[in-house]
């Protein structure tokens, strides 16, 4: 019995730590970030085809040139698909809950690469059909080995957790996707702000909101309350920021600009407290905070 407890405890701690890491990864995820999502071989290697393409142009061999161009286009398309697939996969891995990507992008990318190799071999050299097919198959196989296949299984809530929380996995995913779309809009609007302080503040707000989302992914028991809160605050922030960016030339150093800053200060402060509030399970606090933002938006006249 003691053994059992001893072995179970570290495991559960490890699981919690690991899932926390995933949450943090989700929170730090930047859209379109560089890194492991690049398929470098597919980006660079097909450039080799440029040499015979040029020599084909010099010699004036139209068939070869067309074949090389088509093959290059297919390799390029395959590279784009594989990179999209890698990005989806990274996203999928970073989440606690996720649906498997709908289109198997990495597989489609591998097929495009295989087709590229086939076209190049069959169209531009005197390779027979069989040999061209072999090259195509090998290129596709290499692509699958190098970049793997797409995730195919949905990652859902543990049944026990879902039952206790009284929510379905897709409800959580829907709420989080919705909130993330809004965060994306906020980030986009923030990028066009000319004020460093405000940009930084918005970046902090977005990071904190992502941390809250990661927390909801882990324990969706307060999804309903949290969702109402997120909708109010994210909508509020988004609308205010958008409005401000549209007129920031005229607004600088005016009272309205100061009001805008006040609203963002409130939002940042509330998000900072949010983690605690969600943990405490106190509905009142959330309702109060929702009211606070509403009145402030009205009073400051920024929404």
């Amino acid at each position: 019995v003691v053994d059992d407890g001893d072995s179970r405890h570290p495991a559960s701690v490890a699981r919690r730590v690991r899932s926390h890491d995933f949450g943090a990864a989700a929170a730090n995820r930047a859209p379109g970030g560089a890194g492991p999502d690049r398929a470098w071989v597919l980006r660079i290697a097909p450039a080799m085809l440029a040499l015979p393409l040029v020599s084909g142009l010099i010699v004036g061999n139209v068939g070869d040139v067309l074949a090389f161009a088509l093959a290059l286009a297919l390799f390029y398309g395959g590279m784009v698909l594989v990179e999209q697939g890698l990005a989806r996969e990274a996203d999928y891995r970073a989440r606690q809950l996720a649906k498997a990507p709908k289109a198997p992008r990495k597989l489609l990318g591998a097929l495009a690469v295989a087709a590229g190799a086939f076209v190049c071999s069959y169209g531009a050299s005197s390779d027979g059909l069989i040999l061209a097919l072999v090259y195509g198959a090998l290129a596709g196989l290499g692509c699958v080995l190098a970049y793997g296949l797409d995730p195919s299984r949905d990652k859902g809530l543990e049944p026990e957790l879902a039952r206790r929380a009284g929510v379905r996995t897709d409800q959580v995913i829907e709420a989080i996707t919705e909130a993330e779309a809004k965060l994306g809009e906020i980030e986009q609007a923030a990028a066009s702000l000319h004020n460093r302080e405000l940009t930084d503040r918005l970046a902090r707000i977005v990071a904190k909101a992502r941390a809250v989302l990661a927390q909801i992914e882990q324990d969706p028991s307060d999804l309903r309350r949290a969702r109402r809160f997120l909708v109010t605050y994210l909508d509020g922030t988004r609308d205010v920021v958008k409005k401000y960016t549209q007129q920031q030339q005229d607004l600088a150093d005016t009272e309205l600009a100061a009001n805008f800053r006040h609203v963002l200060e409130t939002v940042e402060q509330v998000f900072a407290e949010q983690e605690e509030v969600l943990k405490r399970n106190e509905t009142m606090d959330l309702e109060v905070q929702i009211e606070v933002l509403r009145t402030q938006l009205e009073r400051e006249g920024v929404a």
Partner: peptide
């Protein structure tokens, strides 16, 4: 299949490079 992900990736990359090099060279010299 009984291969570490790293090895699989390396093998895949090598295979891709090899095939691309072969078809390029064959196309060039024919």
């Amino acid at each position: 299949v009984g291969m570490s992900p790293r090895m699989r990736t390396g093998l895949g990359v090598a295979l891709l490079l090899l095939v691309l090099a072969i078809i390029t060279l064959r196309a060039w010299f024919t």
